[in-house]
Design a protein around this nucleic acid. Sequence first.
DNA 1: TTAAAAATTAATCATTTGATTAAAATGGTT
DNA 2: AACCATTTTAATCAAATGATTAATTTTTAA
Lengths: 203, 203
Amino acid sequence: MAKKTNTEIKASTEEKIKEAARTVFTKKGYAGTRTRDIAEEAGINLALLNYYFRSKEKLFKVVMIEKMQKLFGILSPTLNDATTSLDQKIVLIVNLYADMLLKNPDLPIFVLSELNLNHDGFGSDFQPHKILGESVFVKQLHAKRPDMNPLQFVSGILGMIIFPFIAKPIFKKAIGSEKAFEAMINERRALIPKWVKAILKTK
Amino acid sequence: MAKKTNTEIKASTEEKIKEAARTVFTKKGYAGTRTRDIAEEAGINLALLNYYFRSKEKLFKVVMIEKMQKLFGILSPTLNDATTSLDQKIVLIVNLYADMLLKNPDLPIFVLSELNLNHDGFGSDFQPHKILGESVFVKQLHAKRPDMNPLQFVSGILGMIIFPFIAKPIFKKAIGSEKAFEAMINERRALIPKWVKAILKTK
DNA sequence: TTAAAAATTAATCATTTGATTAAAATGGTT
DNA sequence: AACCATTTTAATCAAATGATTAATTTTTAA
């Protein structure tokens, strides 16, 4: 009991800090975040942050790895599912992303911006070409369209679904309310698969 | 001559600072940039930066407005050209963006990230819905596909062309060299218009 | 209960950073 | 040359910031 309580309390504090870090880092970016902001958001003393995570940078890495997994982790299992057709995979990917991004609208701009700023040697862990590589998806695409570059194809799909979230401040301004933005995204759930099917028929 | 020389020197120093600010802000973002970095990059004393631009934030605004114009300024004249067809406009937009973005690959992630962080009331100036609004482009689209939401359509096109630059760190990793990335973008010049034409034929 | 271990806090440090000031240099005007 | 306005610099400030330290509280285990 003793040890369990200990672990739980520690996990709870650690998790409070992590959760606060997720919030503040995502909202302000790495450079714009002050460790004091995180401590305040977590309702803990500043020194505790360093007690648990050693430094701002180490805490950031923990959050960043989580966020990258959240943003790209959808792909691998979906692209390698042998039980779904190419068309089904496209529908699935579009809807999985729509679901996840509506819940986490500033995830893509956060991850991609921080990757671009490249404070530290990220990307060293992540292997995007392995995800696509010799996936079921690529084989299925090759069977239907041997001439089509899978990267170009995937890039088109991801661009169509993710871009509105990255350019959200623009879209917000163009269409007004948050509700209207969500409606637009939901409309895309059907639109994009239809478009992609048309793209697959181009000769 | 005297006054002209004076003006030229002043413009030269001001421009040196602005150019350095463009470089450093784009590379490190607003929060990650130190005014000393800009001064060093410009080869001037730190105090000169404040002498010419009053503050980091004011200098940033100057740069940011420029960059937004560079990123979105392509659209308005192209979308409102009465002498080109819808298909021609699509080819034009894709190629204008390909040209510009190959020269300024980190422009989109910079502008969109800073807009998202929203340090200051930007967007107050920019009216994206006015650009689309009652453009020739929208009328042409409506004539061919009265059922298609112009914002959804434009969002698809821009997503396909801009997204690879925003996700460049990922693509770089997936395909290797800078040259290969450029080749991929150049391939998209023909690919995207073909795809968009297919999308326009969907019923 | 008590002593060691772990968690938490207040206070403080050393740097960094945006900005200012006062002095010096530069260039044009008379 | 002498004077004035503009430009540039070195030095400095005050606030912010990441991190540490030493002390205190809480928890665990005997």
